[in-house]
Nucleic acid binder design. Structure first.
Lengths: 343, 343
DNA sequence: TAACTATTTGACAGCGCTGTCAATTAGTGA
DNA sequence: TCACTAATTGACAGCGCTGTCAAATAGTTA
């Protein structure tokens, strides 16, 4: 039942040329005489020849494939539009250059470098890199790789396409400040992601610059995509019980913010009259929420697209200096933020 | 600068055994004496040997990789949680069996079979297969493949893991009927997807069974994820202008339904008092909407998971009869549906 | 036409691994 | 200890392609 597989060699024999010439035609090498090319192409079509890409890659050392690694810490990653858009952008950037995506969801005991070391890909794009595994991440610096987030808080030599979270926090705080908010709560996200640290740093710096005191109780870590129960607990501890009560909350992400909105509604509070709520990432969810959600926007698709192009550049040119791109974020103001209530 | 690459041969030489024995150790073949295994493993570790999977695949004919093809018709596919969950399930099913995912977003001139014919994957999972390209889809039947939707309306010999859309429509209509709705509008989705036809068929059959007339004006195709403008146009044509007005709308998907909700709110109508709205797929969006959305739930993660296992089964056992699995859907009732208004 | 350059083509040795199957070694019972 | 079976191991020929580099051919100029 095994179908007869047509190889380069057979095509060459039938066409009466060398394998190398057929190879040139298949790979659209310009240095083949037009007549020869036509003739060989015809034989290829007749025999329905399909090149074996494995053999080709083995011989050439190129796979035209890029590994995309997704860190497990974000179990529900897929339910979050940000990641989907990012992957869409990566995919577009790669496809436009005839590269493919080998997708891998990392779990605890997977190696970040394996895909490359086993020669299955020419390079790696790592999303959601944790900052608590510096050794593993640094192991990637020796191979063509691009991160879509910081892998360490200090400057490092990774190729990186990231968003300006620090600036986004600053914008958000200015916006809330303009509305008269003085006690602003911040849900940073989990410690093992750089965003948590960047947000906290921006928050602290912003307050310092204005000579405002920082109330530590208002700045808390939380898991991404906190569910209703978590959000409820959070509210009860860091909103209802505190005095003075914060008048605004900056959530770690849009899902957490929306769960916050829903819990507040259920508890009989009105947003933004009783409390202003800010999301993060400005995913499609922000405009679907009710009230619609103020949220600083990450250009997720662009981020993925640039990450792809950057990696291809790194693969092709092996730059000696790390390529580090920071994409701007823009605060999109919607209904969930408003003037601070005067308690 | 080229790093010294360690090969099987070198390990064999250093360990003083044959290449084949090293190969056996690497592949965890049971037929290696324990002493030998230990010794070879030690050398492997010392030299930090990394197998070249390309060479291995070329020689063995197995890639341990599966291609996942996503049809382009759904540009925004990635912004829709359903697909993300599906991919998550596929990935889990494959990873558990040490298979990897090669992801490809199809565009007009990509071949569905290429990845397999080029020997880069052992099989294919096709999501969102269109029904208007029967030849291309049937070309896939000769190779190990699984579809996560129907590729044709008639019975066909594809391996398939699908959801019971027909049953879901039936449940939804019963639910609306219980609330007294008699004029129910249906947004089927686009013609080139099987869901549109299945929904329409269920809708018609349901009405026939009850000897109710079918008002063709109420059953309209629409693009998936219809945006605000489209939804507005739809409303103005098929709701406001019709007499009698439909009292409920079954949308093609949750995003369309939510856009519908938002437009209605903006136009000053109240859901479900003025109009009941039903989504489709019961994605995470349904519970985030306000009012929360009644929506028949596809087990998207499970669907992906089963598709993966089915494909691995097909690859391993080449069953002669097509494997066709239909997963149940369950209507999740929330706030967006209620008693029919009496105009 | 000769002499030279530019363009095309081909021979062949790998790329690094696995399948086959025969050879060797270890284990067992009498 | 011997004969026999079971468990281990190894030699070698590919898998199907590309890189290298030399050979052949075509094109150009004087």
């Amino acid at each position: 039942m095994q179908k007869n597989i047509v190889t380069l060699e057979q095509v060459a024999k039938v066409a009466g040329v060398s394998m190398k010439t057929v190879s040139r035609v298949v790979n659209k090498s310009p240095q083949v005489a037009q007549r020869t090319r036509n003739h060989v192409q015809q034989v290829i079509d007749e025999l329905n020849y399909q090149p074996n890409r494995l053999a080709s890659s083995l011989a050439s050392g190129r796979t035209d494939t890029v590994g995309v690694l997704v860190h497990h810490s974000v179990q529900q990653i897929f339910a979050y539009p940000f990641f989907s858009e990012l992957l869409g952008g990566i995919s577009k950037g790669l496809n436009e250059n005839r590269y493919d995506v080998l997708l891998r969801f990392m779990d605890e005991n997977m190696s970040y470098t394996e895909l490359f070391e086993h020669r299955r890909v020419d390079g790696l794009i790592v999303t959601n890199a944790p900052i608590d595994k510096p050794d593993e991440m640094r192991g990637l610096l020796g191979i063509p790789s691009v991160f879509t987030s910081r892998i360490a808080l200090d400057n490092n030599r990774s190729n990186m396409v990231d968003s300006d979270f620090y600036g986004a926090m600053w914008q958000t705080l200015n916006h809330l400040s303009d509305f008269g908010h003085e006690h602003i709560a911040l849900m940073t996200g989990p410690e093992h992601l750089a965003i948590a640290h960047l947000r906290r740093a921006a928050y602290v710096d912003w307050h310092h610059e204005r000579h405002l005191p920082v109330n530590d109780a208002l700045v808390q870590t939380n898991p991404l995509f906190a569910d209703s129960q978590m959000v409820r607990d959070y509210m009860e501890t860091y909103w209802l019980q505190l005095s003075p009560r914060p008048t605004a909350v900056i959530a770690s992400d849009d899902v957490t913010a929306i769960n916050l909105l829903n819990q507040l509604t259920q508890m009989g509070y009105i947003v933004p009259q009783d409390l202003s709520v800010v999301g993060f990432d400005n995913t499609m969810l922000a405009s679907m929420a009710n009230p619609t959600l103020t949220s600083p926007g990450q250009q997720s698709f662009q981020k993925g697209y640039h990450a792809a192009l950057t990696l291809l550049d790194v693969i092709a040119n092996e730059p000696t200096e790390p390529v580090q791109i920071e994409l701007g974020m823009e605060l999109v103001v919607r209904q969930s933020t408003g003037p601070a209530p005067s308690y």
